[in-house]
């Protein structure tokens, strides 16, 4: 188990060093990738660890983005506070969402999350005075931080801020899934009836994980608004919910790191394909189908499987001893 940590640290070091070696357009892409990775990872808590498939995770992203965009435009709060407030707001609203959605299970749960996301979409479209309607909120500034800190106004500074959010959230999630709380979540995933009979109120655990996942998704959205400079209804459109779910599954659900890789794969592939061919979505679709057929464990599963296969012969020798 030592090599994953070494690899992870090397990867983080690379991400930290990136602004010194990469051109500006690549840094924009990388920042977006960090934000999308955080978004996908937040969904993995629900999909991968609790098997709560959500078709409406954009609700979290959009809520965070609109909340942070609105606060940056209409208050003078510094950026980090805005991001924290938007995260908390999303998390608090998600307690209500979780309470309603966990009334159902399986496909109905997924559809309830979708209904809630669509409801937000409809509200964002019509509540023009707050959300800007179909135009959305434009010109969202990356305001200077507290105590005159101007670092966050630059692209590089903002990248580090987003990266810190991603790494912090990743460490938090890893602690969470390794804790007794995470064990209950996995219990729900494997056999909810059994977990209930062991005396756990699984509904409360599910509401809690929905709230945490939405809060982190909200954090990603809260970062996206000042990154892109706008928040519009596209951030609440159901297509993005489908896409982020695919990032989780293609990357490898239930691994935390997999969905981040999935988001990277998704974004880079889209970027590369769209520069080569106009019909990039066609190949995109074919690649997803190929993944399901030939790599059911996702990217992370492929990578770790490859390592395991290489280690296998050794293990066999030891067994014979």
């Amino acid at each position: 188990m030592r090599w994953p940590r070494a690899l992870g640290l090397a990867f983080v070091a690379l991400l930290i060093a990136a602004p010194f070696g990469l051109p500006a357009f690549a840094m924009t892409l990388l920042t977006e990738l960090v934000i999308l990775g955080l978004f996908a990872m937040s969904l993995d808590l629900m999909v991968g660890y609790t098997r709560l498939i959500s078709f409406g995770h954009v609700a979290a992203y959009g809520l965070g983005a609109y909340a942070s965009g609105y606060m940056l435009l209409n208050t003078s709060l510094p950026l980090p506070f805005v991001v924290i407030l938007a995260t908390l707001l999303t998390g608090v609203i998600a307690i209500g969402v979780g309470w309603v959605c966990t009334l159902a299970t399986g496909v109905s749960f997924a559809m309830l999350t979708l209904a809630f996301a669509q409801l937000l979409y409809a509200i964002a479209f019509k509540w023009t005075s707050v959300t800007g309607g179909s135009d959305g909120l434009a010109g969202i500034p990356r305001r200077a931080g507290p105590m005159g800190l101007t670092l966050l106004t630059t692209k590089t500074g903002f990248y580090y801020f987003a990266l810190a959010c991603l790494i912090g959230s990743f460490l938090l999630c890893r602690k969470l899934v390794a804790s007794p709380f995470g064990a209950v979540l996995r219990g729900i995933r494997e056999n909810e009836a059994k977990t209930v009979s062991l005396g756990f109120n699984t509904r409360l655990y599910k509401i809690a994980v929905v709230a945490i996942a939405y809060a982190l998704g909200g954090l990603a959205g809260a970062l996206y608004a000042p990154f892109a400079g706008f928040a519009n209804t596209e951030l609440l459109f159901w297509l993005l919910s489908g896409q982020v779910l695919i990032m989780v599954i293609v990357g490898g659900s239930g691994t935390l790191i997999g969905p981040i890789l999935g988001a990277a794969f998704f974004l880079l592939l889209e970027h590369q394909l769209s520069s080569v061919t106009e019909a990039w979505a066609l190949f995109f679709g074919l690649i997803f189908i190929g993944f399901v057929l030939f790599a059911p464990e996702g990217i992370w599963g492929l990578a770790t499987g490859w390592v395991k296969r290489r280690e296998k012969p050794l293990a066999k020798v030891r067994l014979r001893d």
Binding site: I53, L245, I249, V250, I289
Partner: peptide, 12 residues
Amino acid sequence: SAFLLVTFGLAL
């Protein structure tokens, strides 16, 4: 999730 992915792929 497998069906979700392939039907989404088909849609694209």
